[in-house]
Nucleic acid binder design. Structure first.
Length: 873
RNA sequence: GCCGGGAUGGCGAAAUUGGCAGACGCAGCGGACUUAAAAUCCGCAGGGGCCAAAAGCCCUGUGGGGGUUCGAUUCCCCCUCCCGGCACCA
C-alpha cells in the first residue's frame, strides 16, 4: 500500500489506518490520532464567547426541568468526587435539553465557612480574597470540563447580595417566634473555637476534626425552632418517593420520634430542695405498677438537691458524670458497664402511692426524654440487668396472652419486653391488654394532673450561632434599655466588616471590632451592641436553590411566581454525607417559606440522587494516603471528555467508583476510535451522503441499521429509566465497534462481512446518531463530530434521536434448545418462529434426538423469542 | 440490638419481566503492521475435564445451605461476611 493517500474509502480491502499511520509525525496538523487538547480547546473558546449558551428561558411554554448538583465549598480546586457529581448532572441537563425541556442548571458557591479563616491565619490572606480566588479557579476548572451551567444565575453565598437574605429570613423567623435566644449547653469544638450543631457532632467529635473531642459549654445561643416542624418533616418523608430509602431512613432516625407518657413522681420529703418532683418519660406506662425504682441521669437538676447534704454521694455522682463523658468521647456509650448509686431518698409512684428508691445511674442520659426514668426490671432489659446487679425487686406485671383463654399462662422468661401481653397486679388496670392500658393510663394521668401522653424527638432545635468571623452576621442588637432588638429590615444587610485581624483566640472575632459592635438602638436611639456571632453556614445552603430562580432580585430573596414555576427541583444530585444536615435543614426552610406564603411547594426536592464516592485502591482519596487523582492532571493528560466519560462508565452512579488510570486509558482509546471512524467516513460533500437507502436493505447494512436502532433504544431506556450511564456508554461502544468493522469490511469469524458494501447514507445516519448519543457524556467530541458531519445547527439545539421499533427487531435469532433446563443445542430460526415450527426442528436436531432417544417427553416449553425446553424422563 | 445497601472471572462491571451468566471495559495471552518499539488493528480468554492436537463434547460455577419452578444471579426461608446509618433513646 502507498504510505498515504487522501481518499478514504468506505470499504477498504484491508486496514487503511495501519498504512496511514506509521510515518506521520505526531504533531502534524492532519494527524489522524485524536488530540483532545486541540479539539477541546477549540470548542472551549467558542463556548466561552457565548455567555447565554446554557441559559434557562424565563416564561417559556416548554416543560421545565430543574436539575441541580449540590453547590461546592470553594476549597481551592475540584476533586474527582466533584467531577463525578457534575458529570451526572450535566449529562442529565444536556439530555433534557435535547428532549425539548426548558432546563435550569445553575451553579454556585457555598462560600462562607471556617477554612477561609484558617487560611487567613496561616497566610494572612483576607478570607474574602482567598475565597474569591478559589472560586475563580474552580469556575475555570468547571468551564474547562465543559459543564453546561447557566452562569448568569451564579450564587455566591458570602456576598452581601446573598447573605442579606439570610438576615432577612432570620428576622422573619424572629417575628414568628421561630428564632429565639436561650442559654443552653452547647457543643464546643476547641479547634474550630466555635459551637457546633448537634448534627455536626459525630461520635462525640467535631465533624471537621475527627481527632477533636467536642466539649460542652453553657452559652447564650440563637436557635431556630425546627422542632415545630418535626412531625411534618417526619411524615413528609413517606411522600418523598423519589428519594433513596437510605436517606429517608437516616432522616427518620435523626428525627427520632417516640410516643410515650410523662409521669410525675413526687420526691418524698422534698421540702426545701426546690425540686419536689421528678418527671419521667416512658413508652411503657402500662408497666408502671412494676416500677421498683426511679433512675436519674447524673446531670439531672434534682441531683444537686438530693446530694447537697451528702459529700460522698456527690463525689460518686461526679464519678458517674466523668464515666459518661469518657464513654461519649470514645463514642461507645452503649458499652459502658451499668452502675449507679442509691440516694437513699424515695419517689412516690402516683398510680399506686408506692415509695420507690431514687437511684442515680450512669446509663441515663440527660439529653434524652426528661433525663429520668422509672425502672421496671421485669419488662425492660437494661432495668433487668441493673436490678440483678443491685438486687432490686423484680415485679412481674405483664403476662403473655394465651392462645386459649382457658389455659393458664406460664410465667414468661424475664425480662418480658413485648407489648403482646395482659396486665396483672396493676390495680384497676389489671386485665387490660398493653396497648389499651397505655392509652387508658395516659388519660388517667392527665385527668389526675400528674402526667400526660406525649411525643419526644431526638431532633433538637437548630443552634445557629457561631463564634466565627466568616459568616452571615446575625442581625440583632442588644440595647441597655430595650434589651434584645432586631435590626430593622430597612437597615439590612448588616455588612460583614473586612480587613480585620483574625486569630483563633476564642470568642467572636467581630467582638473585637468596635466600629462593628457599637451601634444605635432603633427603638430608643441609645447605644446598643451588635450581636457578634455569625450564622451556621448551613443557613446559606438551606435556600440557595430558590435564589437561582431569580438570582439578581434586590427587593426579595426571589420572586414567588418565578420560584413556583421552577419548584420543586426535579432532580437533585449530591453525596449522601448531606443526608441529615443540609437535606433536613432545607426541608425545614421550605416549610417555613411556605407558611409565610413565599412558596407553594411543601418540599424543595422531588427526586434526590446520592452518588457513590470516588475511591482509589480501595480507599477514599486523601492527601495523607497519597492516592489523590486531580481533575487538572486528568484533563491535561486525557481531556475533559475522557475524565467525564470514565467517571460515568466505570460504575453505576450510585455505587462507589474505584479510580483506575488504566481504565481512563481505555476510554481514551474509545474516543480515538470514534474520531477515526468519523475521519474515515464523514463525507458530507459526497452526493451519496444523502442518497436514499436501498430497499429492502440486506446483509451487513441491514444488520448495522438494526444495531443502530437497538443502540438508540438501549441508551434511551437506560438513561431514562435507570440512570445506568455505564450501560449507555457500553452500548455506544458496541455500536462503534460494530460500525467500524462493517465499514472497514474487516473479516472475522463473528462478522463475515467482507466485501459487503455499506451505503454511505447509512454511515451518515450512524454518525449523526452517534454524535447525538455521545452529546450528554462527551460534549467536546460530540460537537467536533457534529461539525465534521457538516451540520449547521448547533448540537445543543439538536433533538435526542428516535428509534424505529420495527427496525429494532431481529430477523433471525439463535434459539437455545434445552433438555431439562440445560442448553444442548442451538437453532437459527426466524425471530417470530411458531412453537410448532421450532419444536419440529428441535426434535429433528441430531443432538437433541440422541439425548431424547429412549426417553419419555414429559413436557415441551416454548418461550417466544427466547428458548425451547424439552423435559424428558 | 434496629434500619438500609451489598457479595457475580485476575479487576471495574452486565444480565431491565424467572429464560443461553460474564455484555462493555481494564489487565493478560496470541497474531498482523514495524528493523524494533510505541500506537493501531484482528483474535483468544470463568474454572475443571475428555482428546496427540484442534474442532467438538461433558462436568461445574453468581458468598454458604435449603426451597419453589421445566428453568433461579433474579422469587421464598435460614446463615456468613462487608459497607453505611442509628443506638443504654427509656
Amino acid at each position: 500500500m502507498p504510505p498515504e493517500d487522501n481518499s478514504k474509502t468506505i470499504t477498504a480491502p484491508s486496514n487503511p489506518r495501519v498504512e496511514n499511520r506509521s510515518d506521520r509525525p505526531p504533531d502534524r496538523e492532519n494527524d489522524e490520532r485524536y488530540d483532545p487538547q486541540r479539539v477541546e480547546e477549540k470548542w472551549f473558546r467558542q463556548w466561552q464567547q457565548n455567555a447565554s449558551l446554557y441559559a434557562a428561558e424565563p416564561g417559556s411554554a416548554k416543560k421545565k426541568f430543574y436539575v441541580l448538583e449540590m453547590l461546592p465549598y470553594p476549597s481551592g480546586a475540584l476533586h474527582m468526587g466533584h467531577v463525578r457529581n457534575y458529570a451526572i448532572g450535566d449529562a442529565l441537563a444536556r439530555y433534557m435539553w435535547m428532549n425539548g425541556y426548558n432546563v435550569l442548571h445553575p451553579m454556585g458557591w457555598d462560600s462562607f465557612g471556617l477554612p477561609a479563616e484558617n487560611a487567613a491565619i496561616q497566610n494572612h490572606t483576607p478570607p474574602r480574597e482567598w475565597t474569591l480566588a478559589n472560586i475563580a479557579n474552580m469556575k475555570a476548572q468547571m468551564k474547562r470540563l465543559g459543564f453546561a451551567y447557566d452562569w448568569s444565575r451564579e450564587v455566591t453565598t458570602c456576598l452581601p447580595d446573598y447573605y442579606r437574605w439570610n438576615q432577612w429570613f432570620f428576622l422573619k423567623m424572629y417575628e414568628k417566634g421561630l428564632a429565639y435566644r436561650k442559654q443552653s449547653k452547647v457543643n464546643w469544638c476547641p479547634k474550630c473555637c466555635t459551637v457546633l450543631a448537634n448534627e455536626q457532632v459525630v461520635d462525640g467529635r467535631c465533624w471537621r476534626h475527627e481527632d477533636t473531642l467536642v466539649e460542652q459549654r453553657e452559652l447564650e445561643q440563637w436557635f431556630l425552632r425546627i422542632t415545630k416542624y418535626a412531625d411534618e418533616l417526619l411524615h413528609g418523608l413517606d411522600k418523598l418517593e423519589g428519594w433513596p430509602e437510605k436517606v429517608r431512613t437516616m432522616q427518620r432516625n435523626w428525627i427520632g420520634r417516640s410516643e410515650g407518657t410523662l409521669v410525675d413522681f413526687k420526691v418524698d420529703g422534698a421540702a426545701g430542695t426546690g425540686e419536689s418532683k421528678v418527671s419521667v418519660f416512658t413508652t411503657r406506662v402500662d408497666t408502671i405498677f412494676g416500677a421498683t425504682s426511679v433512675q436519674l441521669a447524673p446531670e439531672h437538676p434534682v441531683v444537686a438537691g438530693l446530694t447537697a447534704t451528702h459529700g460522698d454521694l456527690r463525689a460518686k455522682v461526679d464519678q458517674l458524670i466523668g464515666e459518661q463523658r469518657k464513654a461519649k468521647e470514645v463514642g461507645d456509650i452503649g458499652a459502658i458497664e451499668k452502675h449507679g448509686v442509691n440516694t437513699g431518698r424515695y419517689a412516690i409512684n402516683p398510680f399506686n402511692g408506692e415509695k420507690v428508691p431514687i437511684w442515680i445511674a450512669n446509663y441515663i442520659l440527660m439529653e434524652y426524654g426528661t433525663g429520668a426514668i422509672m425502672s421496671v426490671p421485669a419488662h425492660d432489659e437494661r432495668d433487668y440487668e441493673f436490678a440483678k446487679k443491685y438486687h432490686l425487686e423484680i415485679r412481674l406485671v405483664i403476662l403473655p396472652i394465651a392462645d386459649d383463654p382457658e389455659e393458664t399462662v406460664a410465667e414468661p422468661r424475664l425480662p418480658f419486653t413485648t407489648t403482646e401481653g395482659r396486665l396483672i397486679n396493676s390495680g384497676a388496670f389489671s386485665g387490660l391488654e398493653c396497648d389499651d392500658a397505655i392509652r387508658q393510663m395516659s388519660a388517667y394521668a392527665e385527668k389526675h394532673r400528674f402526667g400526660k401522653a406525649t411525643v419526644t424527638y431526638r431532633l433538637k432545635d437548630w443552634g445557629i450561632s457561631r463564634q466565627r468571623y466568616w459568616g452571615t452576621p446575625i442581625p440583632m442588637l442588644y440595647c441597655e434599655k430595650d434589651g434584645i432588638v432586631a435590626v430593622p429590615e430597612t437597615d439590612l444587610p448588616v455588612i460583614l466588616p473586612e480587613n480585620i485581624e483574625i486569630t483563633l483566640t476564642g470568642g467572636s472575632p467581630l467582638g473585637r471590632i468596635p466600629e462593628f459592635v457599637n451601634a444605635t438602638c432603633p427603638n430608643c436611639g441609645g447605644p446598643a451592641r451588635r450581636e457578634t456571632d455569625t450564622m451556621d453556614t448551613f443557613v446559606d445552603s438551606s435556600w440557595y436553590f430558590y435564589r437561582y430562580t431569580d438570582a439578581h432580585d434586590d427587593r426579595a430573596p426571589f420572586d414567588s411566581k418565578i420560584a413556583d414555576y421552577w419548584f420543586p427541583i426535579d432532580q437533585y444530585i449530591g453525596g449522601v454525607e448531606h443526608a441529615i444536615l443540609h437535606l433536613i435543614y432545607s426541608r425545614f426552610w421550605t416549610k417555613f417559606m411556605r407558611d409565610m406564603g413565599l412558596v407553594q411547594n411543601d418540599e424543595p426536592v422531588a427526586r434526590l440522587f446520592t452518588q457513590g464516592m470516588v475511591i482509589k485502591d480501595g480507599a477514599k482519596m486523601s492527601k495523607s494516603l497519597g492516592n489523590v487523582v486531580t481533575p487538572d492532571v486528568m484533563v491535561a493528560r486525557y481531556g475533559a471528555d475522557a475524565a467525564r466519560l470514565y467517571s460515568l462508565f466505570a460504575a453505576p452512579p450510585d455505587r462507589d467508583l474505584d479510580w483506575q488510570d488504566s481504565g481512563i486509558e481505555g476510554i481514551q482509546r474509545f474516543l480515538g476510535r470514534v474520531y477515526r471512524f468519523f475521519e474515515l467516513n464523514a463525507k458530507p460533500q459526497d452526493p451519496a451522503w444523502r442518497a436514499p437507502l436501498p430497499t429492502p436493505l440486506t446483509g451487513s447494512a441491514r444488520r448495522l441499521r438494526r444495531k443502530l436502532h437497538q443502540t438508540i433504544k438501549r441508551v434511551t431506556d437506560d438513561f431514562q429509566g435507570r440512570w445506568h450511564f455505564n450501560t449507555c456508554i457500553a452500548a455506544i461502544m458496541e455500536l462503534v465497534n460494530d460500525a467500524n468493522r462493517r465499514a472497514l469490511g474487516t473479516q472475522s469469524t463473528e462478522n463475515p462481512v467482507m466485501g459487503d458494501e455499506i451505503p454511505l447514507t447509512l454511515l451518515a445516519d450512524v454518525q449523526r446518531n452517534l454524535a447525538l448519543l455521545l452529546a450528554p457524556f462527551a460534549p467536546y467530541l460530540a460537537h467536533e463530530l457534529w461539525e465534521m458531519l457538516g451540520e449547521k445547527e448547533s448540537l445543543l439545539k439538536a433533538a435526542w434521536p428516535n428509534y424505529d421499533p420495527a427496525l429494532v427487531k431481529e430477523d433471525e435469532i439463535e434459539m437455545p434448545v434445552q433438555i431439562n433446563g440445560k442448553v444442548r443445542s442451538h437453532l437459527v430460526v426466524p425471530a417470530d418462529v411458531t412453537q410448532e415450527a421450532v419444536l419440529e426442528r428441535a426434535l429433528a436436531d441430531e443432538k437433541i434426538r440422541s439425548l431424547t432417544a429412549g426417553k419419555q417427553i414429559v413436557k415441551k416449553i416454548f418461550v417466544p423469542g427466547k428458548l425451547v425446553n424439552i423435559v424428558v424422563k
